[in-house]
């Protein structure tokens, strides 16, 4: 029972991990992109669409990643080059992305004449199967090594991002840009380039989370009304919960994943709470995390100082 619960939590936490890792990369470079929900929606649609037509998982993921890059490129152009307000731009991107996915989702449904369903061979590729040898370990084998391939991809991306951030020169440069772009600029770092690269990379990773939702959570059927359904917003909050560290994002997404599947594992005959409460739970926790984070005073593990502020070299 508990193993099943944790297993489901990992599964439900994975799209959040994509979203959170992507947003951490974005915010660490000094940009608060509230368009995560939108980018996930776009990734959800295009990932599904390409998967539906080609039947290839790598192509589906590549397409989702690419459209995330593209959406984030729009955001980067507006906020880095044109210096538009980051919050407004991000919110607009969310509205745009959601509309984009629903519009084309609708036409995909018409095209297919009913709800489009992924091919069986595709479903086999993305199904859960134990890794040879490792999967045979009792308990741990089931818990850690019997997932669908995207779960491993999410964790690997988070680990790579963490090493990149903390151990490499490029990561140091990027953290400096996010903390104090003027200082980074004076040190000879190309601030604009660093921002573009990481905003786009972050957008691509977020969009993979969307693809996860439509391919895995959707059970192979396109659901036009609730493909992403707020997971992007939870990811934005999770960034704070994870104090801008991709490693902590792994645990954080597990916690939030657990909350979102809790309703299926609470013995209904003992504890009786309306289902709506469980649906609300992750958002409720999100609210608490945000309140707690705003009360935290320490300089360590807090938001990059330059996050949310556009940088213009000749400003005095």
């Amino acid at each position: 029972m508990i193993i099943n619960f944790l297993y489901a939590a990992i599964k439900a936490g994975t799209p959040l991990l994509f979203g959170t890792t992507g947003e951490i990369m974005t915010e660490r470079s000094g940009h608060l992109n509230l368009g995560v929900e939108g980018m996930m929606y776009m990734g959800a649609f295009l990932g599904f669409y390409v998967g539906f037509h080609t039947g290839s998982l790598p192509l589906a993921l590549l397409a989702a990643f690419a459209i995330g890059l593209f959406a984030a490129l729009i955001y980067a152009f507006l906020t880095v080059t044109m210096m538009a307000n980051q919050n407004v731009t991000g919110l607009t991107l969310t509205i745009f992305g959601t509309g984009f996915a629903k519009f084309f989702g609708e036409s995909m449904i018409r095209e297919a004449g009913g709800s489009p369903k992924l091919a069986d061979s595709f479903m086999t590729t993305i199904s859960e199967k134990p890794i040879p040898v490792l999967g045979d370990i009792p308990v741990l084998g089931k818990l850690l090594f019997s997932h669908n391939p995207l779960v491993y991809i999410a964790v690997i991306i988070a680990v790579i991002c963490s090493i990149y951030l903390m151990r490499t020169k490029a990561g140091l440069n990027m953290r400096a840009v996010g903390e104090n772009p003027a200082a980074a600029d004076a040190a000879g770092i190309n601030v604009t380039l660093v921002k573009y690269i990481h905003i786009m990379l972050g957008g691509g990773i977020c969009a993979l989370g969307g693809a996860y939702l439509s391919l895995i959570n959707g059970g192979g059927i396109w659901n036009n009304s609730s493909a992403v359904n707020g997971q992007g917003w939870i990811s934005v909050a999770l960034v704070i919960f994870a104090s801008w560290s991709p490693m902590k994002a792994i645990y954080g997404s597990l916690v939030f994943g657990a909350f979102s599947v809790l309703q299926f594992y609470v013995p209904k005959d003992i504890i009786q709470i309306p289902n709506a409460f469980y649906v609300m739970l992750p958002f409720l926790i999100t609210t608490f995390v945000l309140i707690l984070a705003s009360m935290r005073k320490s300089k360590e593990g807090s938001q990059p100082a330059g996050c949310g502020v556009n940088y213009f070299r000749e400003e005095r």
Binding site: T168, K169, N173, R175, A176, E179, A183, I189, K299, P304
Partner: peptide
């Protein structure tokens, strides 16, 4: 001063220096 508050002196000093290698 053009310094990154959240980083230690060392990281501020080597910031942006172009030498070989990917890792710090």
């Amino acid at each position: 001063f053009k310094l990154v508050d959240a980083l230690p002196a060392t990281d501020n000093i080597i910031l942006g220096v172009k030498d070989k290698g990917i890792f710090l």
